[in-house]
């Protein structure tokens, strides 16, 4: 390991040991897993009920003389059951990211250990990189465990085994989730390293989370003309896609503003990408991964872009020890 990277790894390893010892990783991912499992259990039970209804209907038709060969087998898409799980990552994952990011700086500031660390011969960038690496591993490990448990639960609760393609889809979603939680981690870290008072940093981070995760997507959804009727207004009125596009052209400014609000939310980009990849959104059901990625790649780029921008700000912005140690 080069001399430049050694301090980065030492700082990262310390944060990893700390996460293991304080059981924070276990508690946070356990909470996310539990929430995910509850939603999965509800969805799986609903799917099982649908399946039993189908069996009953099929048996009835067969008993009435309908040839079984004429009956179309229903198609089940197990990954669709992960809708609630993804929504929990959007909300709880963002909170976990902020808490980890805030904690990464606040523990050092509160304990006054930051003073000791910053008197060592290491640069600000090495300090930040160490924090990003250590906590990045914590986030990736926690989410991986949560996804693994969710995939096992799909089998255990719904009796549905996943194929290679499904694991590929889960892998892409896991990567997007790591980027998404990473964005909120860096937000929490940035605020905790910037604000004079730590409680203000936490409050500000949660205000941003509220705006990006709950308010912006809600405004976008509520103002969407197609969402005014369950199932979609255009579909309900049997309006074809070309006509729909023509109609929406007359609301171009309105639609730009509405979409702009939605686009500002990393939660929406994560949701759009995940819902497409997992086939939760009907439009993408059964579509090959490559084709979905082609259509939704901008969502992934958006997440990567924000992630990179925040990492850049953290790495390029010099630490202000005067502010960081003054509180103590």
């Amino acid at each position: 390991m080069t001399n430049q990277l050694k301090p980065v790894w030492i700082l990262a390893a310390k944060d990893l040991a700390d996460a293991r010892r304080t059981k924070i990783l276990l508690v946070l991912s356990g909470f996310l897993t539990l929430a995910g499992l509850v939603s999965l259990a509800v969805a799986a039970a609903a799917q099982k009920a649908d399946y039993l209804t189908y069996i009953e209907a099929r048996d009835l038709l067969v008993s009435l003389g309908k040839p079984i060969a004429d009956l179309v087998e229903p198609m089940f898409f197990p990954l669709k059951l992960l809708r609630g799980f993804i929504e929990h990552i959007e909300i709880i994952g963002g909170i976990i990211g902020i808490v980890l990011g805030y904690r990464a700086a606040a523990v050092e500031r509160g304990n006054a250990t930051l003073q000791l660390v910053l008197t060592r011969p290491l640069s600000d960038a090495q300090f930040i990189l160490g924090k990003l690496l250590g906590n990045g591993i914590v986030i990736a490990a926690g989410l991986s465990a949560t996804f693994l448990i969710a995939s096992l639960a799909l089998y255990a609760i719904g009796g549905i085994g996943l194929g290679f393609d499904s694991y590929g889809r889960l892998g892409i979603t896991l990567m997007a989730a790591t980027l998404y939680v990473g964005i909120f981690f860096m937000l929490g870290l940035l605020f905790a390293l910037t604000f004079r008072k730590l409680p203000s940093a936490l409050l500000a981070a949660f205000a941003v989370w509220l705006a990006l995760v709950l308010v912006a997507p809600q405004i976008g959804d509520t103002l969407d003309p197609d969402n005014q009727v369950a199932g979609g207004i255009f579909r309900t009125l049997n309006i074809a896609k070309p006509q729909e596009i023509e109609i929406l052209k007359t609301f171009a400014t309105y639609e730009t503003v509405r979409d702009g609000i939605e686009q500002a939310s990393p939660a929406k980009h994560f949701e759009r990408l995940s819902f497409a990849i997992l086939g939760i959104k009907d439009t993408y059901l059964g579509m090959p991964i490559a084709q979905i990625m082609q259509e939704r790649i901008h969502d992934l780029w958006w997440l990567i872009g924000v992630f990179t921008a925040l990492a850049g700000i953290l790495l390029l912005r010099p630490l202000n020890p005067t502010r960081l140690i003054k509180e103590n």
Partner: peptide, 11 residues
């Protein structure tokens, strides 16, 4: 060595 030196408590 700062005044009231504080180290990583759980280590």
């Amino acid at each position: 060595v700062p005044e009231n030196v504080r180290l990583y408590e759980t280590l």
